[in-house]
């Protein structure tokens, strides 16, 4: 039916390395506003490697983990890279392949839809415990 190539963009042979900060739960704003551009928190690394993340008045202790199986960050290749710049749907790609001469490989077909590997992720900072609140003033006992 259709083949989608997964590859590094262009002729690159090196791949960027990204990282993941993984939080238990979800990040929300108090008011329903888009998250874009918003400040999240301060990430500190202790001298003993342990990461600490402070979000609002919550403190999270985490650890750095190497992923046993790395992640590839993939994204659909933009259509401008196709031969004629037109949108390629799986159906069209199918017809394009049918039209190929019997001996030519479909691997190099420029109009083939593809996913680009934007980056590889090998490490993450995992905060898996519940955040602790920061209490500024402990009420004095009477």
């Amino acid at each position: 039916m259709v083949q989608i190539l997964v590859k590094l963009p262009g002729d690159e042979t090196e791949c960027k390395e990204w990282a993941i900060v993984e939080l238990q739960g979800d990040l929300e704003t108090r008011h329903p506003v888009p998250l874009s551009g918003k400040f999240i928190g301060d990430l500190h690394f202790a001298h003993k490697d342990a990461p600490v993340l402070i979000i609002g008045h919550h403190i999270l202790h985490g650890k750095v983990m190497s992923l046993e199986k790395p992640f590839a960050v993939i994204t659909k290749a933009s259509n401008s890279e196709t031969a004629d710049g037109s949108e390629v749907t799986p159906m069209e790609a199918d017809h394009a392949d049918q039209a190929l001469a019997p001996t030519s490989g479909s691997e190099d077909n420029p109009s083939q839809p593809s996913y680009h590997v934007k980056a590889i992720i090998r490490k993450k900072v995992l905060f898996k415990t519940r955040p602790k609140p920061i209490i500024a003033h402990v009420p004095k006992k009477l």
Binding site: W18, V21, E22
Partner: peptide, 10 residues
Amino acid sequence: SNSMLLLPQL
């Protein structure tokens, strides 16, 4: 159920 924040630079 965790959220994974992807950071191009960290």
